[in-house]
């Protein structure tokens, strides 16, 4: 069985360029604005969309994504609405993969079986759940795979060669390499080290390896994209939204435009990645 993620990754491989994976927070600053951001992403050059599920206690996130989650929750976002957003997007785009990213508790409270059925029906292709390591695979990973949804695992600098097989075992879609030990939005790690880590992981798996945490600019996307199969950008996008919100949350410009401008630039970065690498 192939998913939209598999098909998209195969297509980009044949084109000889890495994927641009864009994270944004579902419901930030409100449902309608957020949906307009999501709809603008593919046209601006996003290859895979990570749809953030807000959580009250995002333990692996830095201040920018924490604040985005709180804005979304304040705006009334729930997991029900996040799934609805995906299905509204899906009505107009049946190709761009959607990966839900967040923490386990809202899914657990929704009910795993019901969640997987609703996610599948909403056009969700993959899940990234930060607080479910392979030791907890029975909770959601195995049921998700059975439901035909990719479970994308994070590998980190602390995941050594001994542990990597365990991390990769039930991973599908792609592997998300976290470029540093830290929270989202920190400074980018040494890119040479990142390239070496990507190479190390690729020695253990045929899955594409995407790199995230700390990538903010087109230039960084280009450098990372030279070795990785995909580049994930999150905090920079969330900041692009925050930057057009006034002190009381009022919009000073169109957040979808702001995000599209940023993503277009990043897209130029990933598209020139392999050209630069070949030089």
């Amino acid at each position: 069985m192939t998913t939209r993620i598999d098909r998209r990754m195969a297509k980009l491989k044949s084109e000889g360029r890495p994927a641009l994976v864009t994270y944004f927070m579902g419901g930030d600053p409100d449902y309608d604005t957020s949906l307009s951001i999501m709809k603008a992403l593919p046209g601006a050059g996003s290859d895979i969309i990570e749809l953030g599920m807000p959580f009250s206690d995002p333990m692996a996130d830095g201040p920018a994504i924490q604040a985005a989650g709180l804005r979304a929750l304040k705006g009334g976002q729930t997991l029900v609405k996040t799934l609805k957003m995906a299905s509204e997007f899906r009505a107009g785009d049946d190709e761009t993969p959607i990966v839900l990213m967040g923490y386990y508790n809202p899914i657990y409270i929704y009910g795993v079986d019901r969640f997987l059925a609703d996610a599948k029906a909403s056009g969700i292709d993959g899940l990234i759940v930060v607080d479910l390591p392979p030791e907890m695979d029975e909770e959601l990973c195995i049921p998700a795979l059975k439901a035909g949804i990719n479970f994308i695992r994070l590998a980190t600098p602390t995941t050594d060669d001994k542990r990597l097989p365990k991390v990769l075992q039930n991973t599908s879609g792609f592997v998300y390499y976290v470029s540093m030990t830290g929270i989202t939005g920190s400074a980018l790690a040494d890119t040479a080290k990142v390239a070496a880590a990507v190479k190390r992981i690729k020695g253990h798996t045929v899955l594409p390896v995407c790199v995230g945490f700390g990538v903010k600019t087109a230039e960084q996307a280009r450098v990372i994209g030279a070795s990785a199969d995909g580049v994930v950008v999150g905090t920079a996008i969330v900041n692009a939204v925050a930057n057009v919100l006034g002190p009381k949350g009022e919009k000073t410009a169109d957040p979808a435009d702001a995000v599209a401008t940023l993503v277009s630039g990043l897209s130029q970065g990933v598209r020139s990645a392999r050209l630069a690498a070949a030089e």
Partner: peptide, 20 residues
């Protein structure tokens, strides 16, 4: 061995912390 007391407990942490 999984750190569970019945359904409670466990190791619900980010991968970065797991080896530690």
């Amino acid at each position: 061995e999984q750190g569970m007391f019945g359904i409670f407990g466990g190791r619900f942490v980010a991968e970065t912390l797991m080896p530690l």
